[in-house]
């Protein structure tokens, strides 16, 4: 565990908490893509199946359980409790366009052709693009609430910090996992446009709105 990895995990945890609090406090999930949240629930479920087969540390197990539980809690709030506030007219990204290629890629490019390994690879690939329905929704409505921007910034920072962690580990531990690194780069690149808007607008107190 190095500082980048820890900072990444904290950013990830913060993102998940911000989202749950935003929905809970405002009693509304307006502006949030249920499709992205569904993809994240699939990501955590398929990746953290190793909770049942490998014990690493208390920290590791607790974080995995928290991410799985929070993703299902978010789905529950969006699709059940605050369903009336779910903005499904703007949440129209076709997730099969992500799920089908990601499944094919996981079957073709993996470390080992076993069920758990393919599910892990699938979750890494899916995570890299899971935010697209959310970004699509923001671009479609042309704006995002500040709290939604903070959520997106924290979530995007998490994988960017993991990239620094992998650079550190490559130099100091000789560790290199091309699947995670390439997917992590793709994931971070997808946020670049948003990061730019966040820094130039939201941090200066303005609402995140896109040019028409």
């Amino acid at each position: 565990m190095n500082i980048f990895r820890l900072a990444g995990d904290i950013a990830h945890l913060l993102a998940v908490i911000i989202l749950l609090l935003k929905i809970w406090k405002s009693r509304s999930c307006a502006g949030i893509s249920g499709r992205s949240q569904l993809l994240f629930a699939i990501v955590y479920t398929t990746r953290y199946l190793d909770l049942l087969t490998n014990f690493v540390s208390i920290y590791n197990s607790v974080m995995k359980v928290v991410f799985i539980a929070a993703s299902y809690a978010t789905l529950y709030l969006m699709y059940m409790k605050f369903k009336a506030t779910y903005d499904h007219n703007h949440d129209t990204f076709r997730i099969e366009f992500l799920l089908i290629p990601v499944t094919a890629l996981a079957l073709l490019v993996n470390h080992e052709f076993s069920v758990l390994e393919i599910l892990w690879t699938f979750s890494i690939y899916l995570e890299s693009v899971a935010i697209l329905p959310q970004l699509f929704m923001v671009s479609k409505t042309g704006e995002a609430e500040s709290i939604t921007s903070h959520y997106l910034f924290a979530l995007g920072s998490y994988r960017a910090l993991y990239l620094l962690n992998w650079i550190y580990r490559y130099y100091f531990e000789g560790f290199f996992d091309p699947i995670a690194v390439v997917a992590g780069v793709v994931q971070t690149v997808l946020y670049c446009d948003f990061f730019y808007l966040y820094i130039t607008k939201v941090l200066k107190g303005k609402k995140l709105s896109l040019p028409a």
């Binding site: 990895r5 490998n54 995995k64 470390h111 996992d177």
Partner: peptide, 10 residues
């Protein structure tokens, strides 16, 4: 080893 690293990272 790398297999253990995989389970360690989140």
């Amino acid at each position: 080893d790398d297999a253990a690293d995989k389970h360690d990272e989140l």
